[in-house]
Amino acid sequence: MGFALNDADRAFADWVGERAAELAATPPGEPVGRVDRPLLRRLRDLGLLPALFPGAHDGGPLREAPATRLCLLRERLARVDTHAETALALQGLGAYPLLQSGTAAQRRRWIPAVAAGEAVAAFALTEPGAGSDAAALALRAEPDGGGWRLHGEKTWISNAPDADFYTLFARTAPGARARGVTAFLVPADRPGLTGSSLEMLSEHALGHLVLDGVPVGADDVVGRPDEGFSVAMRTLDLFRPSVGAFAVGMADAALAAAREHTRGRHAFGAPLDRLQTVAHTLAEMATRVEAARLLVYAAAEEYDTGGDAVTLRAAMAKLLATETAQYVVDAAVQLHGARALRRGHLLERLYREVRAPRVYEGASEVQRQIIARHLPPIPGTPPTS
């Protein structure tokens, strides 16, 4: 690993790797681009989905998984099956706002079902006019008696339109930006909620939602009214390093493929990896992967120990790991040549899938802005006003 995992985490990583190998030959149970419910049940049966939701099946208190375990789950799964990795991760992203900030009744109703693969969760933040600037949400929550009616649209929503419920963020205080957003738990069968699937470059379940007067009440609020932005950011602080772990897993798979190919392929009278330009490319790829891995697990440890730099390190981890994965996969394709571009090749699939993580859960440009804003003061200088 190149990181000081304890014995329990090392054993957990090995266990995930063994379960991931069992998944590798499992064919998709649903058309690509839609939620694969049979795969979720397979993840449950192997214990991988319950590992994301400690307490959901053993009678203990419901709690979030440590960030380190979440990263190990995602990295080890991504090495062998990105389809399964994404299915698992989206269950976490959609349900963790309830786990972290929801009421006891909300958690009891939905978390065990999500952990069992019987309910599909979705995190609905992005809108047609509010992507990188998440505080600019326009979807309205208009007062209606003792509750609200939701009017507007959400787009690029993972697991939509197939999810069973959405953790959805709406504006309850016009003009207040981040201070006027409320998080709501919205079951998919609420009247006025419709959706459609979006066809994407990668095999990603993604959709568009339209809310036409969808009713929500006080029991549907996640956290407190007008404090939904902090609910979203708390979840993203945990999941951004794990996006980095997903990227590291993809990069590791690409690096392994490139090493195997260049060792066995001969050109100019020798294996490709004996050529200096190829050897140096492999060295650069390996160094960047290891650096990204170190930063991902440093960010996870910062979260698990309650450090003061969680947001900073989470942004750094996501930025470096996703940009690194893009470079490594591209370099692996270049080393393979045309064969890597053939439909069905491992690298052809990774090439399509590696692009999206640089955009979702905060684009690379947003991560740089977060990092710049959270840099610690320069020692010996007075604080800025």
Rank of each mutant, 00 (worst) to 15 (best):
D237N: 15
V114T: 06
G180R: 02
A286P: 02
G344V: 03
F165Q: 05
E290Y: 01
A135P: 05
G55N: 05
G337A: 09
A232V: 15
G175F: 04
G102P: 12
L49P: 09
D252H: 09
R274V: 12
G131E: 14
P376M: 08
L201I: 09
T381Q: 11
G207E: 02
R293L: 11
E22A: 14
Y360R: 11
P187V: 06
A124F: 05
A317H: 01
P271N: 13
G249H: 02
C71V: 06
P357M: 07
P376Y: 01
R190S: 11
A253D: 13
R349A: 08
V16R: 08
V222G: 03
T305G: 08
T182H: 07
D308V: 07
H204F: 09
D133P: 06
A136S: 15
Y327W: 04
V329H: 07
A291E: 15
E142P: 05
L255T: 07
L295D: 12
T384Y: 08
E301V: 08
D162T: 05
Y327C: 03
E361Y: 11
G33F: 00
A141G: 10
V366G: 02
H204D: 06
R349E: 15
A292F: 01
A67F: 02
A283R: 06
D304P: 08
A331G: 00
P271H: 13
T262C: 15
P128R: 03
E227D: 07
L139V: 06
G117C: 03
L375I: 02
D252S: 15
R76A: 08
V329I: 13
F239Q: 12
G146S: 12
E302R: 04
G307C: 04
A267L: 13
D14V: 13
E227N: 04
P379L: 09
G175K: 02
E227K: 05
T86C: 08
A135R: 12
A178R: 14
Q326R: 15
T381A: 10
V328L: 07
H204K: 02
T155K: 09
F165D: 09
Y303H: 04
A105H: 00
T262V: 05
D45H: 13
V289G: 10
V214M: 12
G2V: 14
E323F: 00
L255Y: 14
R69E: 14
A160P: 02
A8C: 00
P191Y: 02
A315Q: 06
T155S: 10
G380V: 05
E302H: 03
L193M: 12
G59V: 13
H336M: 12
V354S: 01
E290N: 10
G2E: 13
V243L: 09
Q369G: 04
R234G: 15
H345R: 07
G129P: 00
T68A: 13
V210H: 10
L99Y: 11
S132D: 14
T322M: 11
D252Q: 14
L193T: 08
A135E: 15
G102K: 05
G131K: 09
E290F: 01
A372K: 04
D133W: 00
S230Q: 13
V289I: 12
A279C: 03
N159D: 11
D7V: 09
G175V: 05
A25S: 14
R10A: 14
P174N: 06
Y351E: 10
G306L: 10
A119K: 07
T262E: 01
A299E: 07
R79S: 03
A178K: 12
P143T: 01
R42N: 03
D7L: 11
S197E: 12
